[in-house]
């Protein structure tokens, strides 16, 4: 059973289609990164799935319960809003105890859960301090702790680190990483590095529509360009050009072109990645030696999530297939960044 499933979920606010027929499946136990630019529909999706708003059309299930039955869903989820707000007069202990009471936890369990979660959030020392005086990072950690009180099956995190400094981001991402396998995490963000760091599966949304959904590794494989990048020492540009000329003669090489803006870097696009893996270096090394070319770097081009994101969001925005970020198959920089 999927942890989250949506079918044609749509949300319209007046003239704005905030969400447009979202169909999505999130497997249990995964950390799902829900990526999209600002205004793409990430928060709307989370608000619908947590029962804070109702879809205009479509259906959705969270932890096996249909979201229309928000009471049943509420008992099985945790939620951290983008900017969690707390009762300023409460202490973290008060808050976690109150949340435990809302979930109907017995007093013994509430006490032990409060202790455990304060420790997990690194707030044990300030458990009796008023939340009103907390920093943003502390509030975010407390927000995550309160979302975990009921040991949720599905945890929704809306931009959990976007407002934090690097230290705060690291803390929260580590906490999220520790949740892998314990519950399903549905995390919206527009920070790609965070997704690369903690998420197994990625969904990219733009203009209310899901552009792609796949495990991160599969996504990277799917968008990998069959290409290699070479970098040589400065002053070796003529020798590099000679090498590229020789490589272009190979029948399994599509193109071999130097980067027009950085003459010391070149990209070799091949027809068959496996053949190239075995044979390209064997062709390069003796010729480079003969040409006196000093190579600094030789690597298979692996697109970053950012490359894929920009390419897919660009496609969705422009409605036309774009080239992989930075380079086309002909090896020319597109300037998409």
């Amino acid at each position: 059973m999927a942890a989250i499933r949506t079918e044609q979920m749509t949300k319209v606010y007046g003239q704005v289609r905030a969400l447009d027929g979202l169909t999505l499946t999130v497997e249990p136990g995964t950390v799902f990164g829900f990526l999209g630019p600002n205004g793409a529909g990430k928060t709307t999706t989370i608000r619908l799935l947590t029962g804070l708003a109702r879809p205009t059309q479509g259906r959705a299930w969270v932890a096996g319960e249909e979201i229309a039955d928000s009471g049943k869903v509420a008992a099985r989820i945790g939620y951290l809003p983008e900017e969690p707000a707390f009762y300023q007069w409460m202490t973290p202990i008060d808050l976690l105890d109150h949340v435990g009471r809302l979930f109907g936890l017995p007093s013994q369990e509430r006490r032990s859960r409060t202790t455990d979660l304060l420790e997990l959030a690194g707030l044990s020392q300030v458990g009796k301090r008023r939340i009103g005086g907390f920093s943003r990072g502390m509030r975010q950690r407390l927000g995550l702790a309160q979302a975990l009180v009921n040991r949720p099956e599905v945890l929704f995190l809306d931009e959990p680190v976007s407002a934090l400094d690097p230290g705060g981001r690291k803390d929260i991402l580590e906490m999220i990483g520790h949740l892998r396998g314990q519950c399903t995490v549905f995390m919206s963000t527009h920070i790609l590095q965070d997704v690369e760091r903690v998420c197994d599966t990625v969904g990219i949304i733009d203009h209310g529509k899901l552009v792609v959904e796949a495990p991160q590794a599969e996504l990277v494989d799917r968008y990998t360009v069959p290409a290699f990048e070479l970098e040589c020492e400065e002053g070796s540009e003529p020798a590099l050009e000679e090498l590229l000329k020789a490589l272009r003669k190979l029948d399994w090489v599509t193109s071999a072109v130097a980067d027009p803006s950085m003459g010391t870097v070149a990209r070799v696009v091949v027809k068959d990645l496996e053949i190239a893996r075995r044979e390209l270096l064997a062709h390069i090394v003796p010729q480079a030696a003969a040409l006196g070319l000093i190579l600094r770097r030789y690597q298979i081009v692996t697109p970053s999530l950012e490359d894929i994101f920009l390419q897919l969001v660009g496609e969705a925005t422009e409605g036309s297939p774009g080239a992989p970020a930075e380079w086309t198959a002909e090896g020319v920089r597109e300037g998409t960044q």
Partner: peptide, 14 residues
Amino acid sequence: ERGTAVLVLVKPLP
């Protein structure tokens, strides 16, 4: 207005 309603209404509180 402050957002505390979100914090509790997403829990099993009718």
